Amino acid sequence: MRKIILMMSVSLDGFIEGPEHQLDWHRVDDELHLHFNDEIRSMGGLLEGRVTYELMAGVWPTAEDDPASTAPMRDFARIWLDMPKYVFSRTLERADWNTTIVREVVPEEIEALKAQPGGDLVVGGPDLAASFLRHDLVDEFRVYVHPVLIGRGKPLFPPFDTIVPLRLAESRAFGNGVVLLRYERDA
């Protein structure tokens, strides 16, 4: 069965974006971008909220032809365009680029999606990730800690009342100071 993987960048003080939705503090260089490309390329699909999807759709469909794009960015553009995407939105009317619109996070439907053949599924976007956490649908956490304190913004994890035991499966430091912490559910 496929896993649901929460894959997100976070500041050292636990925020995924600044108070005005800023992401300019992310330290994504070619080494980290190549790593992201390899990780996403192996996946079976992307589970995105509407805001994340619209952000991605505003960049990646044209990035391959943009002279300012680096080689890893052009590669990611091809990966993103080809990758099956499931966008969770009550308001989005239409989506392109191999995208299916899903109206609600229904645990039984997510379990059925996990049971389909193919690679693991990556959940991205803070609100969608919070919904998946509320429904206990996340099997693995890949948190990329960026070496910066931003002071305030949107936290990676919303408050919740249960303890979720995890075990460290991998840690890796990148040359730019970003550290990957990969945790799996502790059986």
Rank of each mutant, 00 (worst) to 15 (best):
R50F: 10
V51P: 03
A95C: 09
G125F: 07
L47A: 05
S42H: 11
A115H: 10
G125W: 04
I110Q: 07
T70H: 06
N37K: 03
A71F: 01
R94I: 04
R94K: 15
Y86R: 14
L55I: 13
H135D: 14
A115M: 08
N98Y: 06
E48W: 13
E104P: 06
W60L: 07
P61Q: 03
G58A: 06
A112Q: 12
V51D: 07
S69Q: 05
S42L: 06
V145Q: 02
V59D: 11
V102R: 14
F141E: 07
S42N: 14
R74S: 11
L121Y: 06
L149H: 07
F76P: 04
T62P: 01
T99P: 02
E140S: 04
L47H: 07
Y53I: 05
V122G: 03
V51T: 14
M83Q: 13
T99W: 05
S42D: 12
P84L: 11
R134Y: 00
Q116I: 04
V51C: 12
D127S: 14
V59T: 14
G44C: 06
G119C: 10
N37F: 04
G44T: 02
M43R: 09
L55D: 13
F141A: 00
P107K: 09
G45I: 03
M73P: 01
P84I: 11
P84K: 07
L128R: 02
M56Y: 13
K85N: 05
G49D: 04
R134K: 13
L121A: 03
D120E: 06
L133S: 03
E93C: 04
Q116G: 10
N98F: 08
P107S: 09
D139S: 01
E140C: 09
I79W: 02
V123T: 07
E104W: 09
A95F: 10
S89Y: 07
R134M: 00
V122P: 04
A130P: 00
P67N: 09
T70E: 11
T62V: 10
D38N: 15
N98M: 05
P126L: 03
D120W: 08
R78Q: 13
T100L: 04
V148G: 08
P107V: 01
E39T: 13
R94H: 15
R103C: 04
R41F: 08
L113A: 09
T91E: 10
G119N: 03
I40Q: 08
E111H: 14
V145K: 01
A129W: 00
L55Y: 10
R94D: 15
V87K: 04
D136C: 00
A112D: 08
P84M: 12
